[in-house]
Design a protein around this nucleic acid. Structure first.
Lengths: 211, 211
DNA sequence: AGTTCAGTGATGCGT
DNA sequence: ACGCATCGCTGAACT
């Protein structure tokens, strides 16, 4: 069957693939699964791992020239040389429904905010996604001593990057003359992050979805 | 053709999908492309976008019970109810070759380090991936005035996170009694990051792969 | 369009 | 195994 570049399809073929754009790459000749979607998305998948070997984001344009598939999008281009087509299947009525996800960071954040007294007993005011010039604070608490408690929520294991992020916020509140304390709320935390936190007025609050 | 769960294959079918694990999700019934790889990877792809609607990472085990595909991996599980199989194709001799990528951040870093005098004219010593307790510095330069120059390299547009990262390093060198200055080296930088950098002794070095 | 951050992030490299 | 930074990250929300 002839490849129709205007149709969504998957193609299993012996190919060579090259890419040039933000970066550049080559992929040695072999059998790969090539998936084309109606929004222009193109995926070149290898026989293992989650990520495609090459891809184009939505909006790409696919063309067929002799034995070459060429996908272009802005300054990016994929070239696929077709040596042998093993199978070709078009996909009609392909669903574009979205996955509904729960147990996200936003949910965890809201749970903590709703039961904030379990974490900061003398809390007076609670703000969620409090805006500052250096980013939004997940939860901002003002306690009975007028201390600004900056809480950064992480759904997985918190690392040094979380400490850096908090310190951008605490520094900001210091600069505008507030008393401040930092908190990381997460199910887990890396050893280095915990150590770094201890030396910089940041406390760890153990928190997960089961609460 | 009957589905063989021990084979790599792609399957286009009318299905219902649910997931539970680190998060949880549901996907409404419809036609999706399901890809199974020999390392256990499972992908449920919708008709648009780059990312799969659901997936299992390498190492998952796939089983078929009546009209249900079940993939399990540690504490994670995907359930696929098969209402109607539209097409099924097995993929033999599927290549697992890796893509060779160039123009990466590491390349840019090495280029800058090799021609450091173009950026910091009075450089005396240059270290690449210099280790500190708060992470590795991309490029550390000691200049003629014994100032420790911390250079953070970004291959794309640098943002506030780059500033935070640098400040972890500069603070460390301050604590051990060094004179220090921060640099971001990148092709582009966000407006907020540039502003934040200006106020915190961080300079921006414009750098890209063309040099 | 630009900026920021979450993600079932994944992936690779180091310890 | 944990810890960390990169990624052609993608995707979404907000400005």
């Amino acid at each position: 069957m002839q490849i129709r570049v205007e149709q969504p399809f998957s193609l299993y073929a012996d190919v060579d693939v090259t890419y040039d754009g933000r970066a550049a790459s080559t992929l040695e000749r072999g059998n790969y699964l090539i998936v084309h979607k109606s929004d222009g998305t193109l995926l070149v998948m290898g026989g293992d791992k989650y990520k495609p070997r090459n891809y184009q984001a939505p909006g790409a344009i696919l063309k067929l020239h002799n034995n070459q598939l060429v996908s272009t999008r802005k300054d990016e281009r994929i070239n696929i040389i077709l040596h042998n087509i093993i199978s070709y299947t078009e996909h009609h009525d392909w669903s574009v429904a979205r996955t509904k996800v729960t147990k996200t960071e936003a949910e965890l954040r809201d749970k903590i905010a709703a039961s904030i007294k379990d974490y900061i007993p003398n809390a007076i005011e609670v703000f969620v996604e409090f805006q500052t010039p250096v980013g939004n604070v997940d939860i901002l608490v003002i306690d009975a001593n007028n201390v600004y408690c900056v809480i950064e929520v992480k759904r997985g294991r918190a690392s040094l990057a979380a400490c850096s992020q908090i310190r951008r916020y605490t520094e900001y509140f210091n600069e505008i003359g507030r008393q401040v304390k930092g908190y990381i709320a997460s199910p887990q935390i890396s050893k280095n992050a915990l150590k770094h936190a201890g030396g910089h007025n940041i406390a760890w609050l153990k928190a997960d979805h089961s609460i």
